[in-house]
Simulated assay, not measured.
Amino acid sequence: MYPDLLDRIDKNNRDWLKSWGCLVIQLPQAAICLNPDFAHYNGIFAIDCPKREAAPLMQELVEKIKTESGQRPTVWLDRYCKPASLPQILSELGFHLASISYTMYAEPTDVKGRPVADLSSFSIREVENPLELRRWIGVYCQAFGVANQTKETRRWGLAFRKQQLSFFAGVLKETDQPVVTGQLETTHQIGGLYSIGTNPTYRHQGFAFTMTAYLAIAASRFDLKDIYLIAESEDNERFFDRFGFREILQVQNWQQS
């Protein structure tokens, strides 16, 4: 089950990156992602090479990304990357383990029946026009601590125009104030839940999980039997674990010192 599931998740992730302007290139022994506007998305992943070739390959790809983007790349390692000694090789090349993210999987029925926020004062809407998108981006920047809203406007404006990604906003009915964001990617027979975040002023009221449950229901309307998300910390992993998601893959994020 998991190899097929992870293959569809990988394809979905690549489509999500491409939807807002990342260039994803598949090479014989690795894949690279390039985006000059967002340094943390310049990276190397899906590495599969003989041990003796790993160090020179990493050096070559690091220099290529520096040349193309002007940024130092991240290397994303999971248990399917080869050789197994890649962490040691990266350490010798001046990289350090910066963080770990967690790919989590559920079936829509696992999530959509869980308790949600008080919907008498709260509703979720799909973003349908540029004005609503600007408001969505404002909440996204607040939720994720993003200072440069201009870049985010360019990034998500491109994805919105391509119509490859559905945007959703959770709105307080009394004030029409958006307070939580979410996205749904539905290619490759799987639903990817992205950008679930709440304005810090309105956290701990159930809005983020209500958005998660709503996206799970939306995924089931596309006749998708599987959904996934990526938790960026152990705290986020524990949060989503409470609502039916389970970890299926850890990804180490290595950065140059």
Rank of each mutant, 00 (worst) to 15 (best):
R161H: 06
S91F: 09
F168P: 06
Y202H: 08
D7W: 10
A213T: 02
K112S: 12
S123G: 07
Y202N: 06
E60A: 11
K151E: 02
L172N: 00
K82Y: 05
A216N: 07
D37C: 07
Q59L: 10
V146A: 06
T74K: 09
R8Y: 00
Q26V: 14
Y214R: 12
W136Q: 02
K51T: 13
T153L: 15
I248Y: 03
R246Y: 13
F209L: 09
W20E: 13
V139I: 09
I230E: 04
Y228M: 03
S166R: 15
I124D: 03
P178L: 01
Q149D: 15
K112R: 15
I9N: 02
R114P: 02
Q256C: 11
V116A: 11
P115H: 01
R161E: 00
G21S: 02
R242I: 04
F239W: 03
N199F: 01
K64C: 03
K112E: 13
I137E: 07
S19V: 07
Q29I: 09
M104T: 07
E174W: 08
Q255W: 02
G206P: 01
G70F: 02
S123V: 08
L97I: 03
Q71S: 08
K64N: 00
R72Q: 08
I196L: 11
N13S: 14
A219L: 06
L77D: 02
H96I: 14
R134C: 10
V62L: 00
D235M: 14
L23N: 13
D226L: 07
L61I: 04
D223I: 08
C49T: 10
N236V: 08
G182E: 03
A169H: 01
Q183A: 02
N129F: 03
P3K: 09
Q88Y: 10
P50D: 01
G206M: 06
R72H: 10
F243R: 12
K162H: 14
F38D: 10
M1N: 15
I248M: 07
K11C: 09
E185R: 13
N13G: 12
